[in-house]
Amino acid sequence: MVALPYLWLLLFFVVPFIIVLKISFSDVALAIPPYKPLLEWVGKHSLAVKLNFDNYAFLFTDSLYLHAFANSIKVAFLSTLMCLIIGYPMAYGIARAKPAVRNVLLLLVILPFWTSLLLRVYAWIGLLKANGVINNVLLSLGLIHEPLTMLYTPFAMYVGIVYSYLPFLILPLYANLEKMDWQLLEAAEDLGCRPWQAFYKITLPLSRNGILAGSMLVFIPAVGEFVIPALLGGPNALMIGRVLWDEFFANRAWPVASAVAILLLLLLVPFMMWYQSVQARESAGAR
């Protein structure tokens, strides 16, 4: 019964990575497809494996790539942090709302998630442009005298990422907080905690798995994000997803793109495994 999905994922999810790995060791060639085979017949009967580490060496020598990796991690980390700062109080508030209100608020969190990411990112262009809504409002209020440059800046990129990934953080966090026994907070207050101390000593440690799961759902995809930096970040927003895209589509350097993908994957696999173990713990109900 599980054989069909199993084989499907094996063929279309696992095997492709092996191919990516293989191509990352190939030479770039002006051909279709634009890379040289890894195995070559040398003479008549001997098959030579030519492992080519040039692509990786290239990635580590050209500072552009390392810079892009570092910047992606920084952007993803800060975005995750901002999502947490905005999302935690929201998830908490929703979890403590009356059931009827709670369902409406949840629906409002889920709704943007169902509308196209592309269109929601596009909306920010209209807001952040030089003659966009925000500048128009600020100008008409007299708070500024000339338009602020917001679009195509790191600021715009952060706004876009936080905006797009916020629901991914709120939902698992809410699911965790919703299971919380609020009487524990009363018990803590009864034993002498002020409300914020009770939050820090009880709620926060008990929602650890929700925080981790939500953060991972933001951090991991954000590291490889392409659309948001491409639309909001401007030409010098160096994100690794964009580098990969450009190597592949603009430069047709498939082996380099593959090497980037492999390095990115190696970087993210520990986080993915962490995420999976957090999920397993959360569904087992252990604290």
Binding site: V2, Y6, L9, L10, V15, F17, V20
Partner: peptide, 27 residues
Amino acid sequence: GRFTLNAMTTAPLVMPEVITGLSLLLL
């Protein structure tokens, strides 16, 4: 293969799209 299946169904949820896209194309 339960563990593998579990991993294979969790990973695409967080996998950056550029990686999934590139790998499928190469396949």
